[in-house]
Design a protein around this nucleic acid. Structure first.
Lengths: 205, 205
DNA sequence: CATAATTATGAGCAAATATTCAGGTCTTGC
DNA sequence: GCAAGACCTGAATATTTGCTCATAATTATG
């Protein structure tokens, strides 16, 4: 229940193909189970059952329950970082609206497979210091990049660019999480259009 | 663990002052404990300990763990509803920016005491049908009111007012939750200014 | 003061759940 | 085709945690 990592190392490095396959099955099953039942009710036994393997096998590749969730989170963060970097390379220079559009689209895309899991990840995941730092760093980096962008871009008129950058990063992240995983999901096209419009008009004053 | 209410009634109605005092102590302690540890790790024993009472006393006033969280949530919702009504009475008519400002200010105010608890409430609270309906109704009502406002107000230029209304309600709620409870909380004044600016410029096109 | 009613206590129960380990089954390399 | 290591199994164990209940302390009542 506590988030201490009693063992840092996974118990085994998979050496055969079937082992790696089992590992993948566990992660896939965990993604479904956590997304459907939440973290607390997403028991390791349920995960093993859904993966079609025994509970013992699960504990050969993950030291404890937290480690499974942590790995899922790290994967998502890595995806996010990759997308952010790609956008930063591709987007410049150009109208601010196009930059926002690329960011928003990237964010929406990376939330389409497992929206419910992602809410669980960021809302219920036990916050090990390591993972927490990673999240924080990613958001800080993004905010810093965005602030520089706002400071330099000729179309931008907001003055308090620090608050603005944080506001934008937070808004994009949270609104997408919430609305994509909502009981009555919005059309992602509309969401993209309106969100981009909101951000653009905001910074252009 | 499950969210069924085995007993609807609290076990006892407090009849002496010290009993009511104990009830309050429990709720206050629960607010702290849930805010600090989350719902699952916020154990009833920890709550009792923090309240300086025995675990048995806790179960004299609340039928189960869920009921404590539910009461905290209902209190917050009632606050929110009251603020929303007040704003709706006071705000009209006037420039849209002023209306938004009143709403944002009200929302920020009602999140200042226990920001971390409030995130737990809306993110991890077990969804008893009763409470869930209340939340949904409040948000739907607000979105409907907002949509009507957008449709009629002469300054407003957005066309997809339904998506816009949902976007705005979601944004205000989530961003405030997140940023007020952040490790480095933003200055609430800046937050208000920028958030209002964002919404206003958005709807005015 | 005496009796009843109310409130408080906390060791311990029961159920749920994470995790282990002794002993099987499958793969690989020779 | 046969060891040796890799992998898998799942009943059993350890731990956590919501919650009870017999008993004690406090307060109201007359």
């Amino acid at each position: 229940m506590s988030s201490d990592q009693r063992r840092i190392q996974p118990r085994k490095q998979p050496r055969q193909v079937r082992a790696e396959l089992t590992r993948q099955r566990i992660l896939t099953a965990a993604a479904h189970v956590f997304g459907e039942h939440g973290y607390a009710a997403g028991t390791t036994n349920r995960i093993a059952e859904r993966a079609g393997i025994s509970i013992g096998s699960l504990y050969q590749y993950f030291p404890n329950k937290d480690a499974i969730l942590a790995e899922l989170l790290v994967r998502h963060l890595d995806d996010g970082a990759a997308i952010a970097e790609r956008v930063q390379r591709e987007a410049l220079p150009g109208p601010i609206e196009e930059i926002f559009r690329l960011f928003v689209r990237g964010a929406i895309e990376s939330h389409l497979d497992e929206p419910r899991l992602l809410r669980v990840l960021l809302e219920q995941a036990p916050k090990s210091n390591d993972v927490l730092e990673r999240v924080e760093r990613l958001k800080t980096d993004l905010a810093a990049y965005l602030r520089a962008l706002l400071d330099e871009h000729p179309e931008v008129r907001v003055t308090d660019t620090e608050t603005a950058a944080r506001l934008i990063v937070t808004t994009v992240e949270l609104v997408i999480h919430q609305l994509v995983a909502d009981h009555e999901p919005v059309d992602t096209g509309c969401l993209e259009t309106e969100l981009v419009a909101m951000l653009t008009r905001y910074v252009k004053g």
